[in-house]
Design a binder for these strands. Sequence first.
DNA 1: TCGCCTGTTAACAGAGTTGTTAAACAAATC
DNA 2: GATTTGTTTAACAACTCTGTTAACAGGCGA
Lengths: 207, 207
Amino acid sequence: MEVNQTNTEQSILAAAEQIFIQKGFAATRCMEIAAAAGVNHAMLHYYFRTKEVLFNQIFEKKAAQLLNFFVKAFDSDLPFFEKLQIGIETHFDFLVENPRLPLFVFREIIQSQERKQFILQQVFPIGMELLKQIERAFNKEEKKGGVRPVKFFDLLLNIGSLNVFAFVAAQIFFDVEKDRENPEYQKFLNARKKNNVEIIINSLKIQ
Amino acid sequence: MEVNQTNTEQSILAAAEQIFIQKGFAATRCMEIAAAAGVNHAMLHYYFRTKEVLFNQIFEKKAAQLLNFFVKAFDSDLPFFEKLQIGIETHFDFLVENPRLPLFVFREIIQSQERKQFILQQVFPIGMELLKQIERAFNKEEKKGGVRPVKFFDLLLNIGSLNVFAFVAAQIFFDVEKDRENPEYQKFLNARKKNNVEIIINSLKIQ
DNA sequence: TCGCCTGTTAACAGAGTTGTTAAACAAATC
DNA sequence: GATTTGTTTAACAACTCTGTTAACAGGCGA
């Protein structure tokens, strides 16, 4: 072996992840990934055979990450409303670290029937299984009369809507990679986080 | 002239609109648009010179439509909360007819610095001007003490989040073009519309 | 009728993209 | 020190995509 056995493979993966997420499958060129990884473009085909294989590897990892995280964020032992708040905030913080992820996954799902199938058949059922646990806790609280009667599915969609859309909007007004230290950006994020928690809690509290 | 003068241009535009919105700029092939329009692909270049010119024509039209509509939806003379409800519902109904539009615009904004500039400099200011009218009505209501103090910008983001994300989710579970008559899809849409109005109203009402 | 204009087509040029391969090369093993 | 194995490179083949062009068809005015 010459220099770095797995390093080449790793740097291709890292470069591919970044570029694919930013530009999507169709707009990404193999040469560009190779250049970013600092290797000859033949390396991509040596390690991953085709652009599609490389892409799918990243897509599947990221799609799973997105859903698993959503589930894990609600997995704690606190009182219901505290758990909810921490869940929303943790999910939001995950998006701060991965601001482009949701749009990336949605874009590629919508574009390819195969990927849609993959999500619906491979990722979704696993997530659903985990979500049921949280749903039970939620329903228990509902029976106790602590919350307004809302469908759990609607609750999840509401949280997802508010949290995800904050980062879609953020990408219009800010450069989510370079503006991490920008106080305006941080102010925007904090305001949104607080707003989202309030809206959701408000929608569940009995008037 | 041989066959149909302006019909060719129109059918190219119609085909391009559909395919660009579904696949985005990078994934769309000129040949595909030509085939869908039923013309030789040289026609695209005859009428529009380049793929980019054709795309920009559609993008600019759609981006303006998206924002103008958002503004127009809130433009009525009813009491505040009724106006708000009708505004949210009208915006939602617009998305029922254009379910892929938001994701299309966001995707292309994010991908191209030029398009982002176009949105921020050409489209946004016009929308903001119009939005100020609605903001004044909102602030008046706020001063009367009829609503909780919320930043108008946050309110807009909240409505946008909930309405837009409904159609992002819809595209995962349904085929938004073919499922128009599907009762499951209609049930989903009605539930979301009702949910979104409730959440927003709830977030503004004083407890 | 002739020439001109618009719209259309097929063929093609040029650039860029994915994917292949043969050869060089460096370290590990024998 | 020769062999093997894994890694890298340059060159290239095949293909696709965008954009051009030359030829052509029919309508229309001179």
